[in-house]
Simulated assay, not measured.
Amino acid sequence: MLKILFSPAESKKTGGNESKNELLGSNSAREEILNEYNKIVNSADAEAIKELFGFKKFSDCEPYICDIFNSGLMSAIERYDGVAYEYLDFDSLKSEAKELAKSNTIIFSNLYGPLLGGDTIANYKVKQGNNIGSFVPDKFYKDRFSYQLDLYLANCEILDLRAGYYDKFYEVKKPYTTLKFLKGGKTVSHWAKAYRGLVLRAVAQNGINSREEFMALEIDGLSVEEIKVIKNKTEIVYNITHL
């Protein structure tokens, strides 16, 4: 089985009416950081809230001020709304592709830590790189969840589509595949987000379940430039032919 490691997004869709489910690797450790987040958000301390959310104006914070344990829920892969998710275009996928994306994508949230795409979460705001009270999210989740992820991924192949920052949440210790995107011979940054979304979409649409199947997959707008193997990492370098 192929599992895809993926990044979250700063922007998110509001609302949600899904039922609560058990989260990937769910345990009391996650409750610690969620409780701390909830305490800050509902503290009436405007400066602490603005700092956590990364906003200068308190009015921008107001949509996110709620009790996270009694808020509308939505699957993580539908909640996030950044560039990668725009190009994934989850809503337009067929039902089988949606289920594959929900079951096989692991998203590394700044608040919730590792989540399956189908895990349901509340609307929240944590600026990337910010602490949550005394908690440093990337260190916290790496310390508390790495062993569980090692076990969960033990019999899986891994396609790592995370942005570099989210490597801090979990270090892959077994052979895995990652991607690099070039345009005119130069590494792209912003459009890399778009192509990560397009790659995830292609994986879901084509029912890709193994590294072998992925290697044989032709993705519109991309051509393979080279394949590098460095220790346990196989890096596929793509040229962007068009967007």
Rank of each mutant, 00 (worst) to 15 (best):
L5S: 03
P8T: 00
E10I: 04
G16D: 03
G16I: 03
E18W: 02
S19P: 03
K20D: 05
E22W: 03
N27A: 03
A29G: 00
N35I: 04
V41D: 00
S43K: 10
A44D: 14
D45V: 02
E47D: 11
K50C: 12
K56G: 00
D60Y: 09
E62L: 14
Y64L: 07
I68P: 01
S75F: 02
A76H: 01
Y85R: 06
L88W: 11
D89I: 10
D89A: 14
F90P: 09
S92L: 09
N110M: 07
G113M: 03
P114Y: 03
L115D: 06
G118S: 06
D119N: 01
T120E: 04
T120V: 01
N123L: 15
V126S: 07
Q128K: 14
I132G: 05
D143W: 02
L149N: 09
D150C: 09
Y152E: 13
Y152Q: 11
N155T: 11
C156A: 14
A163H: 05
D167Y: 06
T177F: 09
T177P: 01
T178G: 11
K186Y: 05
T187N: 11
V188A: 12
V188N: 11
V188L: 08
H190K: 13
K193H: 12
A194G: 09
A194P: 08
Y195P: 01
G197C: 08
L198Y: 03
L200T: 06
R201E: 05
R201I: 04
N209L: 12
N209D: 13
E213S: 13
M215Q: 06
D220P: 08
E225R: 15
K228H: 11
K228G: 00
V229T: 15
I230R: 11
N232A: 09
T234A: 02
H242R: 11
